[in-house]
Design a protein around this nucleic acid. Structure first.
Lengths: 227, 227
DNA sequence: TTTCTTTTTAACTGAGTTTTAATTTTGTAT
DNA sequence: ATACAAAATTAAAACTCAGTTAAAAAGAAA
């Protein structure tokens, strides 16, 4: 996954600098705005993954900024404020803030709250998709597509093919495959492999008699190739 | 929508009573546990929409309880603790807590943080209508329409289908589904799934014998597809 | 309480998957 | 080219898993 992008909207230069350095050294990409107006424009031009919003802005009440942002912005917003009144906290949270910290804040805690907020936002789950040529492997959805069509695989076919996909280009020995899919008691059942390799070829090869992906290495094992 | 269910795990009777009254008068359904063990059992038997967890439990460290819960429990967990150390806060948040409040807490703030947590929890998604083809899912209203006709779902049917809707296209294993809907004590009751899948199919499929939406992945689980 | 709805059990049926075995084809070495 | 070993093919048997149904138990509503 790319660096998560965080927009800081705060008029205090010291806080901005502190946050910028802290966040950058924790591998976030940081942008910052000094005023409400600037912040809203920046957020709409290039929506960040998370916004840190100071309630005490010079040109507009932070609560209003929050409301405006929440009309369209769905990623987490964390409020920073010098005000520790319950009224303000409730108001901010009910207007769509995900968290509220009072200044001065502890940087470690802020970072943890950012991680927590980003975690619950949908962003995190980068899906491991292996794609080549006509085949597309989605390990998290447990699907295989050939020319965009979903191919039905049985449980055993899938685990076999998943091992191949993770070791693309390498020769995998009979022993290794049998042990990995069926367990160590099956290392002599090469026949299982022949049957299942044939089944998989029928499903993924254009011409199962002239396999292009699942190649036999006679006397050794098989190799999975994606051109 | 039905009342959101909140589980309180706290050994201090005063806090429990206070929370119970406050939450009930704000239209939440409340359950409470006095110990870590009791709390985990209650959460597994009937997973609540949100958990309030005290870190200072008599029988087990709250951090451990949090870790255990997070192995399967996906809804929000809010930590209550007398400890205000940064270390504890970071630790809890990084172990999957959604928020951390120190005692004594302000009830109004707690309520606002509960609302915020429930809001961002997938239960009440910000864009909660999923529509495809003939099916229309409104996650916040907890309704399902097929060809614009309202379909009646029981609580269990709904939570099962809601999980599917949020993971469209993905294979969900028996284990995962059983754990998410019934709790970790039920991961061997595949029969439950068969019965409920059949019931749901009767309601949403054009021809329940040839399901197009709720697909069986033999030996693995089920997949929900919206064309 | 009684009644109605929903969930849990259980027994049975059927479908899909894996294993086994027999036969044919291909590859390798002499 | 021939012989032998390895791999591919095919289909049926054995087995596992899923679907169906209905009744019992539990829970909610009247």
């Amino acid at each position: 996954m790319n660096k998560a992008e965080i927009l800081i909207i705060d008029d205090e230069m010291q806080i901005r600098k502190l946050l910028e350095i802290t966040l950058q050294s924790n591998n976030y990409a940081v942008a910052d705005a000094r005023t409400a107006k600037e912040g809203i424009i920046m957020a709409s031009n290039h929506p960040p993954d998370l916004i840190i919003l100071d309630l005490g802005l010079p040109d507009k009440s932070g609560h209003e900024v929050l409301k405006e942002l929440r009309q369209w912005y769905t990623n987490p917003i964390i409020i920073l404020s010098v005000i520790n009144s319950e009224e303000d906290i409730i108001h901010a949270l009910d207007n769509g803030a995900n968290d509220y910290l009072t200044k001065p804040f502890r940087t470690g805690e802020l970072l943890a709250r950012i991680r927590s907020a980003l975690r619950s936002s949908i962003l995190e789950d980068s899906d491991p998709i292996i794609r080549f040529d006509d085949l597309e492997f989605d390990l998290s959805a447990r699907t295989l597509r050939k020319n965009n069509e979903l191919i039905k695989l049985t449980a055993t076919e899938y685990s076999l093919l998943a091992i191949f996909a993770r070791n693309e280009g390498k020769v995998l020995t009979h022993q290794y495959l049998l042990r990995a899919v069926w367990g160590p008691g099956y290392i002599n059942q090469s026949q299982y492999l022949r049957v299942f390799i044939a089944q998989i070829r029928k499903k993924i090869e254009n011409d199962p008699n002239r396999p292009e992906h699942l190649i036999t290495e006679s006397g050794v094992g098989y190799r999975f190739v994606l051109k």
